[in-house]
Design a protein around this nucleic acid. Structure first.
Lengths: 170, 170
DNA sequence: CTTGGAATGTCAACAAGGCTGACGTATGCT
DNA sequence: AGCATACGTCAGCCTTGTTGACATTCCAAG
């Protein structure tokens, strides 16, 4: 691995896009693009001394209102201590509401308050604006490919979480 | 913004891919995919108690050997204090060499030692392997779209940095 | 030749946001 | 009754980002 500098031919089909150089360009593109991806929300969050961790929590609570803490933990891939620190501030700031479960009273179901929804809107409007502009520049064909590659890049459990979320509003 | 739930029609062309729902899916795809993107290098780095910051420094030094600290600063988008902390450990661990500039002796030119190149290979082999697998699953058309969208998502200065790097080995 | 500014390095202090480990409480299930 | 689960919390640690202050070295302009 790591030494195929030239174009490969595989089963008669040219696989120029799989050269190390092409792969490295993709890696760097991911790095720089992710910076842009988070830049706009980051600016808004900084105003109110929140961070990306708060954004992620808010996003997925907005996405699946009433989700449990355990559920959120699995999606975010952090420890409960880490998540709890963030949730505590969001709850005490009145952006998130935690309701005891009716069926299982051990569970807490998480919801955005109106203030929480307002912040969520600001954040996702900003992020969507960049996304929309990128999509528009690249066109529908490119967007389809973009989504395919990203999905193929995920770990299996993340792909499952992603599909589940994706299909839940379809 | 944030309220176009249905398909749009714009200049006679259907823009279904620009609905808020589609954009949100793209956002979540970026989030989950980035986790996969960094997962493999992260595991290797954890073995030797390094972090992503070390990986980034190593990657771009490998990419542009002899680059100056200021140059690296601009690419990585962190403060010199942050970068310096990382560089210090890499230098004292014998992975990076810092040579005083010949033309301008204030500048330090950064190079990977043999040990540094070994680590770089392990890291980028792992990251490329995932990238290659994703590219292979998605196919050349998708890869082209993937790259287009990522590039359109970057900030202007990052796009410049990216293009410069990209074209330097073409 | 002196001096101002640029490039670099370093020290200190701090914050966000990860982590582990341990412990407590309430609840549910067997 | 007893074990497991869901959640919260305290304490402490690490990485990686930040700002501010200050020293050094060197180029270049006056």
């Amino acid at each position: 691995m790591g030494d195929n500098r030239a174009a490969q031919v595989f089963g008669g089909e040219s696989l120029l896009f799989l050269t190390d150089e092409q792969l490295r360009q993709g890696i760097e593109a991911m790095f720089f693009a992710y910076r842009g991806f988070t830049a706009d929300p980051d600016r808004i969050l900084a105003e109110m001394s929140y961070g990306r961790a708060h954004h992620r929590a808010i996003h997925f609570i907005s996405r699946a209102p009433g989700t449990t803490v355990n559920n959120l933990l699995a999606i975010l891939g952090v420890t409960k201590q880490s998540l709890n620190r963030v949730l505590r501030t969001l709850i005490s700031d009145g952006l998130v509401e935690s309701r005891v479960g009716t069926r299982d009273k051990r569970e807490r179901h998480l919801f955005l308050t109106e203030a929480g929804q307002n912040l969520e809107s600001r954040l996702s409007d900003a992020q969507r604006a960049r996304m929309r502009s990128a999509y528009k520049k690249a066109g529908p064909e490119a967007v389809s490919g973009f989504r395919q590659v990203l999905e193929a890049m995920m770990d299996a459990d993340m792909r499952r979480a992603y599909s589940k979320l994706r299909d839940s509003t379809t």
